[in-house]
């Protein structure tokens, strides 16, 4: 968290993350170029095309990783640190894709009779044929999406656009992924003869889809159906909530609420972080503040406010106790509304 905007708020974890990312990308490109240069001897693939392929496949692999991190972190919270700096991974994906596109654009559509942009858009207009489909357009659309995502991968844009618009924009990663799958299937796969490319494409898609389905199923199971006319929701026994952790319940309106057990008692806040809509209920109370599991944004459990000098606020909820049984009023209170924590009989141990 910060009250000022800086290009990158570096810390040790981000540096380690980026070092591993950079080493991985450099290693991938080096191996691809080395093997691709040596494998055919005198009949080697032209270097610009080899580099274009190295960059394109690297971007595609990274996009798989970026899309897999979210559901992995939902399935196993030990992956949450990988999510923390995902925006750097996304920007790296865009830069690799941009390099791929720049070579393809200049090499395939330059040096000719017409403007390269005109050539790109008009060389092949065979939209009615699957085999002949102008797959370049699909890649171009995906690149535009990746650019918009990379350009707005900063808290300044998140604040400026608002969480909902920003999140919607970044959910375009999925259409972008679909466009790239088609770009590869209708492009490279039509030229290459080895079935390994089709197998890997299907395996990659199945992995991304499978992880999302698994995470989605798990999330759905959390959402217990609550009748609409319930004034107070029975959350369960307070002892079932681990100390400094939360239990997440869904209200009849479909909102998720995180009910934390902490030193002050039992408090309830919305499960949605004001930063990137991270799941606060999977966070932890650290030094008296709820810490979001995604990027560490903090809120006081008793009023949903970030500690000074920060100004973020989230909705709070009323809770009451019947013995050690916790009940939640499903009506959200305005963000930042103080609510006295429900005190457990005999202390909070």
């Amino acid at each position: 968290m910060s009250v000022t905007y800086r290009p990158v708020k570096w810390n040790r974890n981000k540096r380690i993350y980026d070092a591993i990312l950079a080493a991985g990308i450099a290693g991938y490109l080096a191996v691809f170029l080395a093997v691709g240069s040596l494998i055919f001897g005198d009949e080697a693939i032209g270097f610009p095309i080899l580099l274009m392929r190295a960059l394109g496949t690297a971007a595609f692999v990274l996009l798989h990783v970026a899309l897999a991190i979210g559901p992995l972190a939902r399935l196993d919270r030990r992956f949450l640190p990988v999510l923390y700096n995902r925006r750097h991974l996304g920007v790296a994906t865009f830069l690799l894709a941009l390099g791929h596109a720049a070579i393809a654009f200049g090499y395939y559509h330059g040096f000719g009779l017409i403007n390269p942009i005109v050539s790109l858009l008009t060389a092949n207009s065979n939209y009615s044929s699957l085999a002949g489909f102008p797959f370049e357009i699909l890649g171009l659309l995906a690149l535009v999406i990746l650019f918009l995502m990379a350009a707005t991968s900063h808290d300044f844009w998140q604040k400026t656009l608002g969480p909902s618009v920003w999140k919607s924009l970044h959910m375009l990663a999925y259409p972008a992924y679909g466009l790239i799958v088609l770009h590869v299937a209708l492009g490279a796969l039509q030229s290459e003869t080895q079935s390994i490319y089709a197998i890997l494409l299907v395996a990659g898609f199945a992995t991304v889809a499978g992880l999302h389905l698994a995470a989605g199923r798990r999330e759905r199971n959390k959402d217990r159906r609550i009748p609409l006319d319930v004034a107070w929701i029975d959350v369960g026994n307070a002892d079932d909530i681990p100390m400094d952790r939360a239990k997440v319940v869904s209200t009849p309106a479909g909102e998720r609420v995180a009910i934390f057990r902490h030193a002050g008692g039992i408090s309830a806040v919305t499960n949605v972080c004001a930063h990137q809509r991270g799941p606060l209920g999977e966070g932890k109370v650290v030094d008296g503040c709820i810490s979001c599991p995604w990027h560490g944004w903090e809120y006081r459990p008793e009023d949903g406010c970030s500690p000074p000098p920060f100004q973020e606020r989230i909705a709070t909820y009323r809770v009451r106790l019947d013995g050690r049984r916790v009940f939640l009023n499903p009506e959200p209170l305005p963000p930042g509304t103080p609510v006295e924590p429900a005190r457990l009989p005999g202390g909070n141990s």
């Binding site: 991985g24 093997v35 691709g36 494998i39 496949t57 692999v61 990783v65 080895q194």
Partner: peptide
């Protein structure tokens, strides 16, 4: 992370190795 990077390198080699020969 180390396993992921190693898998990436193997993948890079495999993808590069499987390319169609460009001809003479």
């Amino acid at each position: 992370a180390l396993v992921a990077v190693a898998l990436g390198l193997i993948l890079a080699g495999g993808l590069a190795y499987s390319q169609r020969p460009p001809g003479p």
